[in-house]
Design a protein around this nucleic acid. Structure first.
Lengths: 348, 348
DNA sequence: TTGTATAATGTAAACGCTTACAAAAAGACA
DNA sequence: TGTCTTTTTGTAAGCGTTTACATTATACAA
């Protein structure tokens, strides 16, 4: 009746040796039908389940993958996790989530926190990691690498030689810039991201390229660093608008992600700006609430569940290759053509 | 240099026995300072980390808790997870997430999927579980219980004798009903939840009590079962509105959760209903986007992070007691007084 | 010096499995 | 019937720790 009986109990009960029980457990051939039946009966009588701990001990496999994510409260990462978890389950593994903070809080060798779990592999999302910690982490990952397959997810610099599913934020932002500029926008703000963060560096590159492509000047007031939550976006846009004459207000903003974009919508509304007529807003990640905001949010869909799933597949394949993540722009009402600007005429 | 060296390697390197290394590892007293130092040096030279697998083998502790949640894509559960994860970390444990589907998909004894992991305890969120599967699951939990501490989270019926942090959805819905009725609403809809789901049963009770308290009739059209996503809420309200004469449209809806409420907002908007003037909407869970919807959503804050944290504490305390979850109503623009109803006058 | 208490270290078994190898049983065939 | 295969089953070692217990070193008193 015990869910915690051992293989010995089952063997005794069925009148066989533990090797035979083990064979039945692992569905190995070479067990006579009669014996197999007796063993199965004993197993179900005891509600027996082999200990994954003991199994891991001998087989050196834990059937467990790890995934390191910044935080789950952003639905973006919940999607990645879900995709990874589903794919792993299909392959007979489960996925352990390591919030970024929990492992980087560790001593001088953060990745060792992963090492002691003896995972069969680990997926690491390198987004949002502050530069310095990121560097330390990648450094300590080097120690881990010989013993645990690793796959990176995110805006992974070309020189980082790990298997990865990566996307190029520079390219994405440049694309959005071109689109906005094509709609007539000339004053475009880039909001969010920590200055020190890797992804952000790439976003900046794309932003500057976008301006350059259209021979637009770089205006430093249009470039604001901030955290990744709605309140951060709200404060950031508030600050920008309050610092500038209305005549110089941007006509479009590209937000770090949809959360920041949500904050921008709120700030715009509070400042009497209509979206998209007075201000176009573009977010990123296409989280579930994007279509339900007012106006619905134009965003970049990063296909996060697929991303998570592909990371698992790459991890299990053992190949050391880099793949590109899929992404696409989802057009909704919050992004639109630059309208004739009343403010400009009013403002002297 | 190897992150996967064993205690023997360290012992050899430091010229001591494995017992001594083990003592240093576990910071036991009774190791001379000189020896300790040598061992520590060897450990860091090798980047050695004791295998948690092997540790679990002897110590019978895995320092790992499990948490079973319906899904992470609803920020509600991401919050619970985050709270639990943080609290667990503070206690030196990590938390494994088991999506509900992944464990209920199992054979006839779902809880055994948890058993084989030899977790130090497991938190189970019983929300949304379809009645039949829920029953099977609780049944199989009985087998697990003698060997693994269990804490339930959710609308746990009084007769279920498990340690739990529970909330009474009947009470909450009744409270919301009283509030809406106090604002003059007479036609109140209850939208969402699966008919078979335990929580939903309690919501129904609260709804009926609320009507009874105010001597209002029960109108079956105002009662719609549906899934928990925005699209479900949208379809559900669409269906209700299309089925009824505008004169009989509800003036308020109580939604299963904020996702469903989001869908209701969209449906209302599409039907030309102003919120809250024509239709008040109340959600549940107070997810991060609730304040950013238009109008901002009145919701029930379930203090989910705290809930998760308390579940962990209860689990680790080993006490078999039931605690009440905290909750409070958060008033925002989507819920308001019942306005003189133009529709009623227009409709013949 | 010897003896005794205490601190430091070592030995070996155990945890619950897997697996290589050995042994026994069952068939096949002469 | 006996011999040789083939199938089935069992034995024992090993995985990397912890831990009870044994042993040795050290300190101190007599």
């Amino acid at each position: 009746m015990a869910a915690n009986s051992t293989i010995y109990d089952i063997a005794a009960e069925a009148g066989v040796s533990i090797a035979t029980v083990s064979r039945v457990l692992r569905e190995e051939p070479g067990v006579s039908p009669r014996t197999r039946e007796r063993v199965i009966a004993a197993i179900s009588r005891h509600n027996y389940r082999p200990s994954s701990i003991a199994r891991g001990m001998t087989s050196k496999k834990t059937n467990t993958l790890g995934i390191v994510l910044p935080k789950l409260l952003n639905p973006n990462y919940a999607m990645i996790f879900t995709g990874a978890s589903d794919a792993a389950r299909a392959a007979g593994c489960s996925v352990n989530l390591f919030p970024w903070r929990s492992i980087v809080g560790q001593a001088e060798n953060p990745a060792l926190a992963l090492a002691e779990r003896r995972l069969d592999g680990v997926i690491i999302c390198v987004e949002y990691m502050p530069q310095e910690e990121n560097a330390r982490f990648l450094e300590s990952l080097r120690e881990l690498r010989p013993f645990m397959p690793i796959v990176l997810i995110g805006c992974v610099p070309a020189e980082v030689d790990y298997p990865a599913i990566s996307y190029n934020m520079a390219e994405i932002v440049r694309h959005v810039m071109a689109w906005l500029i094509g709609l007539g926008h000339q004053r475009i703000a880039l909001i969010g991201g920590m200055e020190s963060d890797q992804d952000q560096k790439r976003r900046d590159v794309g932003y500057l390229q976008g301006l350059q492509d259209a021979k637009l000047p770089f205006v430093s007031s249009y470039r604001v660093f901030c955290g990744g939550n709605p309140a951060d976006g709200e404060n950031a846009l508030d600050g920008m608008l309050e610092q500038l004459q209305p005549a110089y207000w941007p006509t479009a903003v590209i937000a770090l992600n949809d959360l920041v974009a949500m904050g921008c919508l709120a700030s715009a509304r509070r400042h009497g700006l209509r979206v998209p007529e007075d201000l176009s807003v573009v977010g990123c990640d296409n989280i579930f609430c994007a279509p339900y905001l007012l106006p619905p949010l134009t965003s970049i869909d990063m296909h996060q569940q697929e991303l998570g799933a592909r990371a698992v597949e790459l991890l299990l394949s053992g190949e050391n290759k880099r793949e590109d993540a899929r992404w696409e722009m989802v057009f909704r009402a919050s992004g639109g053509p630059c309208e004739p600007d009343m403010r400009e005429r009013k403002g002297e």
